[in-house]
Design a binder for these strands. Structure first.
Length: 809
RNA sequence: GCUCGGGUGGUGGAAUGGUAUACACGAAGGACUUAAAAUCCUUUGGUCGCAAGGCCUUGUGGGUUCAAAUCCCACCCCGAGCACCA
């Protein structure tokens, strides 16, 4: 073994060796081993691995490696979420082909990922932009289409004027495009949707069965937005007092019905265009109403939903409605503070019980009626449940995505592309990718000709591509059967792996990817394609790594930490272990990158290296092989080694439990404590120490192996060190995870704290399991205790086994 | 406004009813060195004290308990999600 810990040489060597030995290739079945599926969100091939990727992939690798050593058959796959806008934007800016840009980035990033030394099973790699992959994305889309879960409709949709494409509701954050921050506007367009709303109730109620952080569950609950209420019907009367029809309002407060002094309909309400603005209607201010509707349309979502904005509206003159509870005639307004796409698009206004209605009533001098609440008023309506969740808008007017496998006949009626024509290839003869409001694919001559050739003259292709969140809604299923040429995945094969045991990723996907995947999986379950209704049993959301200045890393701030540079300087093991040490992994906190912390980890590893060398170089007699250190004739360990053995077993327990809970930081600190003790007894340091036994050090190395896989394998296999004891010609990562012995964790002696009125006044050492009586007696004779008791009367004594004697005076 | 997290040394954090500040960083002092780096040793929450030791301290104020960072109530602050959703 070399004197110097040369991370560069070691890491290169072992990465190569692991790859040659196919160490992490996972079979679907291994006799005597239980399968375990641990998943990380696959990256977008942006072209460069940043420190966030390291945090996302290298730290969960600790977990995967541990599980493998614990005897599970672990699948830990990786791939690329390769469709998406950046490729297209690069194409527009630099004139490169998005395909070329993407695949070059993937090649480069794969190299970077290799330098991480993760135990990924690369043989299962998926790339969503590969025709072999998106063929099945299309196939699944058509399955949903056949089931009526994918449909096309004209609707008012979110439009990003900068990306020049529509967006799903989930991709609009505070009225802005999630991608580019441009203000989103509304457009009436014919678009493709998934009927995620059919699953609103299931998506909500099944959350209870998931071992997910509360944070995600509540985010999804908020997003689904269930509310139970009543639909009340108000009869409409025109100026001649004829009853024409009824207008439905949705309310969660039917008990306030007596206080309704007017009704409001949203500007989008179909009743306005179909009846009110109709030439036959007797409305006196049609023009005014039409003008108001037009004004609303021009507003952005932000303008319209700004609460501080003064409310506006127009009375519909010539009709009144009748309160079903008391027969009162009340006016009807159109106002944009009522939303067209929630509830029934109309409300009853109760100014005395609703602030918004009060604001409006004040402005337009409408009456405010004080009332007593009456729960019985519900009988005038019908109980209904409404959700805020909207259908998932899936089409995008962009190029670099999965083509929607639909064609239109000469009448414009949509037809699915037959399965034998899948993959329905993305045309390659598109040159201009600049977004113009229509997909760039519309310029493809090849696609138009392809459609006419297959389907006949006058047939036209669908030009839109799919939202990339569809690609990522089933990638975890494909990992289970990534080479399947006949179907997206084999159901029996899925059974071996699904549902995913552990899934870790970022909080930004709480109401996007995680919601979409659940929907998709539920739909596939109902189609009989998968075996269960939920894909991810346990989800862990990770924290965020900030720049050294505590700010979000960004090129403009100049606080970006380059992982390649760090790996070059201190090694992959150090970078990975530092990230694990920075704080608890399973919390959505934010941790600033701290170079000092990196140094601390590097020091720790250097010390391990040194101790390994010393264990080896110790001359024969003090080096007792295989647990033989300093034993008496009867085979008992000396005092020092016994203490150490006790600490070792405690450390095994702590590290094992902490890894299970993703608390890698405290697992590392436990190993540091152990190392501090190991150093004290190795001969190279304090001469009065006792020799370290080899099997203790081996156990320590195994605990460290998932954290510092390269270095530990090097020590493990070093021909001049541990091999002395006749072992270790194969990887340490194939070793069994150490088990702790409960009997060895037990302390012979414990420190009993003596408290008086809950304050610590003294302590003494006693045998474990000391009785209450004995402990009291021992405590009472202590001078420190007597001093504080001071002849006062002891009213009560509290005894906590092996911990505390507390006298209350 | 509603919902969910969170607030502990100079810093990242540990402890989820039982000795608060583990572990690491930083800082100070020392050893080695011509010197520096590296390494090793010691100290390191505040405060009073020569010392022994005392008192105080987990955002603030109350409460429950023999005992509270931890449980309860109110408030303040930070982060995240939702939000004119009737």
């Amino acid at each position: 073994m070399q004197e110097k810990y040369d991370h560069k040489e070691i890491e290169k060597k072992w990465q190569k060796k692991w790859q040659e030995d196919n160490l992490y290739k996972t079979e679907d079945e291994v006799k005597g081993k239980e399968n375990f599926y641990t998943l990380v969100e696959f990256p977008y091939p942006s072209g460069n691995l940043h420190i966030g990727h390291w945090y996302a992939f290298a730290v969960p690798d600790i977990f995967a490696r541990t599980k493998r050593m614990q005897g599970y058959n672990v699948m830990f796959p990786i791939g690329f979420d390769a469709f998406g806008l950046p490729a297209e934007n690069a194409a527009i800016k630099h004139g490169v082909d998005p395909r070329k840009w993407t695949y070059e980035n993937i090649a480069y990033m794969e190299k970077q990922l290799q330098s991480m030394g993760n135990s990924f099973d690369w043989s299962r790699k998926v790339i969503t932009s590969d025709p072999e992959y998106y063929k099945w994305t299309q196939w699944l889309f058509l399955k949903l289409y056949e089931k009526g879960l994918a449909y096309k409709k004209k609707a008012s949709v979110n439009w990003c004027p900068s990306c020049n494409t529509v967006l799903a509701n989930e991709q609009v954050v505070a009225g802005k495009c999630e991608r580019c921050d441009a203000e989103v506007i509304q457009k009436d367009l014919e678009q493709w949707f998934f009927k995620i709303t059919d699953y609103a109730e299931d998506l909500l109620s099944d959350l209870d069965n998931l071992k997910w952080p509360e944070e995600i569950k509540t985010a999804q609950k908020n997003w689904i937005g269930k509310s139970e209420g009543t639909v009340l019907k108000f009869e409409i009367r025109n100026s001649k007092s004829e009853i024409k029809e009824k207008i439905k309002v949705f309310t969660t407060r039917a008990d306030t019905l007596m206080g309704a002094t007017y009704v409001v309909v949203a500007p989008e309400h179909p009743w306005l265009t179909q009846e009110i603005l109709n030439s036959k209607s007797e409305i006196r201010n049609k023009e005014e109403i039409q003008k108001y509707i037009n004004q609303t349309k021009q507003k952005t979502e932000i303008e319209r939903t700004n609460e501080k904005k003064e409310k506006t509206g127009v009375e519909i003159k010539g009709v009144k409605v009748i309160n079903p509870a008391n027969g009162e005639e009340i006016p009807v307004f159109v106002a944009d503070y009522v939303l067209g796409n929630y509830g029934t698009g109309a409300i009853m206004a109760v100014p005395s019980h609703d602030e918004r209605d009060m604001d409006f009533a004040k402005k337009y001098n409408l009456p405010v009626k004080e009332i007593t609440l009456d729960w019985d008023l519900q009988k005038f309506g019908q109980k209904v449940t409404k959700y805020k969740l909207r259908d998932w808008l899936l089409s995008r007017q962009r190029y670099w995505g999965c083509p929607i496998p639909i064609v239109y006949d000469p009448e414009g009626k949509p037809h699915p592309v037959p399965k034998e024509n899948l993959p329905w290839l993305l045309p390659e003869d598109v040159k201009d990718f600049a977004p113009k409001g229509e997909s760039p694919i519309a310029t493809s001559k090849e696609l138009r000709e392809r459609v006419e050739k297959i389907f006949g003259e006058g047939w036209k292709p669908e030009y839109d591509t799919m939202d990339t969140f569809i690609d990522s809604s089933w990638y975890f299923l494909r990992y289970c059967d990534s080479k399947n040429k006949n179907e997206p995945f084999d159901k029996l094969r899925l059974k071996k792996w699904m549902p995913v045991n552990r899934y870790s990723g970022g909080a930004e996907h709480n109401t996007m990817h995680l919601l979409y995947s659940r929907f998709f999986h539920k739909a596939l379950f109902d189609l009989g394609l998968v075996n269960e209704s939920e894909p991810f049993i346990k989800r862990m959301n990770r924290a965020l790594i900030l720049g050294p200045d505590g700010q979000k890393m960004s090129k403009s701030k100049g606080n970006v930490v380059d992982p390649d540079e760090m790996v070059e300087k201190v090694g992959s093991d150090t970078v990975k272990m530092y990230l694990a040490f920075i704080g608890p992994y399973n919390e959505t906190g934010q941790y600033p990158w701290d170079l000092g912390g990196v140094v601390g980890i590097r020091r720790f590893l250097e010390r391990v290296w040194k101790i390994a060398a010393k264990v080896n170089n110790t001359p024969k007699p003090p080096l007792n092989l295989r647990g033989g250190a300093e034993r008496s004739e009867a085979g008992e360990l000396g005092v020092g080694n016994k203490k150490l053995e006790n600490l070792l077993h405690k450390t095994i327990k702590k590290v094992t439990e902490d890894i299970e809970n993703y608390k890698f930081n405290t697992a590392i600190s436990a190993m540091m404590i152990l190392l501090n003790e190991l150093e004290k007894i190795t001969p190279h340091q304090k001469s009065q120490g006792e020799p370290l036994t080899l099997d203790m050090f081996e156990t320590f190395l195994k605990l460290l192996a998932p954290f510092a896989p390269h270095m530990t394998d090097e020590i493990w296999n070093s021909p001049t060190s541990l091999k002395l004891c006749g072992a270790n010609e194969s990887s340490i990562h194939l070793e069994e995870w150490p088990k702790y012995d409960e009997s060895k964790i037990k302390e012979e002696n414990v420190i009993i704290v003596v408290q008086i009125n809950g304050k610590v006044r003294a302590q003494f050492e006693a045998e474990t399991g000391i009785s209450e009586k004995e402990a009291q007696e021992k405590a009472l004779i202590m001078p420190d205790v007597q001093k504080w008791l001071d002849d006062k009367e002891i009213k009560k004594t509290i005894f906590v086994l092996n911990k505390i004697v507390n006298f209350v005076v």
